[in-house]
Simulated assay, not measured.
Amino acid sequence: MKLRFAGKVAIVTGAGSGIGAAISRQLAGEGAEVLVSDINADSARNVAAEIRSAGGKARDFAVDVTDAHAVETLVNFATRELGGLDLAVNNAGIEAARKATANYSLEEWHRVMDVNLHGTFYCMKHEIAAMLACGGGAIVNVSSILGSVALPTASAYTAAKHGVVGLTKAAAIEYARMGIRINAVGPGWIETPLLSGHQELANTRRLEALQPMGRRGTPKEVAALVCFLLSDEASFIAGSYHLVDGAYTAH
């Protein structure tokens, strides 16, 4: 495999499973030293150990992205212990109970916003500062197909993921001349633990019937896009939002 990221240091949040784990594995496989972070310390530790057993470089770090101070500590660890920060993937996210907008409790609404939108901002705030100190870098924020379309009874998630796309675009303009490229990806229905928790959508036949390609995507397919956007091959791509959804949103 081509070592596109040899000598680079990367942070991936929500990396204990699913898309984040797949991104961490590919980054490490292509030469990066990856700081595998997740709110679940055991999951982060297991993914990092798996990467090391395969010959890659990885450290684990437990972090709750809703805690701005904890996120700052994460980034400081990367710069202090790993020598800097070149790449970041802000992937941590949660779903919410499916219900009509007026039926959300304030606690449910704020929890989704805190993790999916505010957590992405906290990460970017500190990652950008670290990258500026290192002379530049690349960031990919993981939004969703619901960053461009809507799903009834998922207004909190839809609003948060639309917000991630807007945040990505604004920051990309601000830092483009400072050597930092910022993009977003919008995964569709991907085979992950998050999707498995969707009891309504977990029925394979029902969900696959909605897909023009007739199947769900895989975390590796999302990782391939994310790693391309982080690489020098995407050197003129910034401020954009890339779907990986098997034509779902083309309906």
Results as ranks from 00 to 15, higher is better:
Thr218Trp: 10
Thr79Cys: 12
Asp86Gln: 03
Pro219Arg: 06
Ser144Trp: 12
Gly31His: 12
Lys57Cys: 08
Tyr157Lys: 06
Leu27Trp: 07
Ala138Asn: 08
Gly119Lys: 01
Thr204Gln: 14
Tyr175Val: 01
Asn183Ser: 02
Phe77Pro: 01
Gly136Pro: 07
Ile23Pro: 10
Phe228His: 12
Gly136Thr: 03
Gly246Lys: 08
Thr158Glu: 02
Leu87Asp: 03
Thr192Gln: 01
Val140Ser: 11
Leu151Glu: 13
Arg181Phe: 06
Thr79Gln: 14
Leu35Val: 14
Leu35Tyr: 13
Ala171Glu: 10
Gly83Asn: 02
Thr204Arg: 11
Asp60His: 15
Ala10Asn: 07
Thr158Cys: 09
Ile190Lys: 00
Val140Pro: 11
Val226Glu: 13
Ala234Asp: 06
Pro152Val: 10
Ile182Val: 04
Met1Val: 09
Gly84Pro: 04
His251Arg: 07
Arg206His: 12
Ala68Phe: 03
Gly31Met: 15
Glu33Ile: 10
Gly239His: 11
Glu33Asp: 12
Gly7Asn: 08
Asn90Phe: 00
Arg111Val: 14
Tyr157Thr: 05
Ile190Glu: 00
Glu33Met: 14
Ala96Gln: 12
Gln211Ala: 13
His198Leu: 10
Leu117Glu: 14
Ser143Met: 05
Asp60Gln: 02
Ala92Phe: 04
Asp245Gly: 00
Ile145Ala: 04
Val185Pro: 07
Ala97Gly: 04
Ala44Glu: 06
Phe228Thr: 06
Glu200Thr: 01
Trp109Ser: 02
Ile94Thr: 09
Val89Arg: 00
Ala150Phe: 05
Ala49Lys: 05
Ile237His: 05
Ile11Tyr: 11
Ala160His: 04
Trp189Phe: 15
Glu127Ile: 03
Cys134Leu: 10
Leu243Phe: 08
Gly29Asp: 11
Ala6Arg: 12
Ala176Glu: 13
Ala15Cys: 10
Gly197Pro: 02
Phe77Asp: 05
Gly197Asn: 13
Ile182Asp: 13
Cys123Asn: 14
Gly16Arg: 00
Ala62Asn: 01
Leu194His: 04
Val75Gly: 09
Asp64Asn: 08
Met124His: 05
Ala96His: 14
Trp109Phe: 15
Asn203Asp: 14
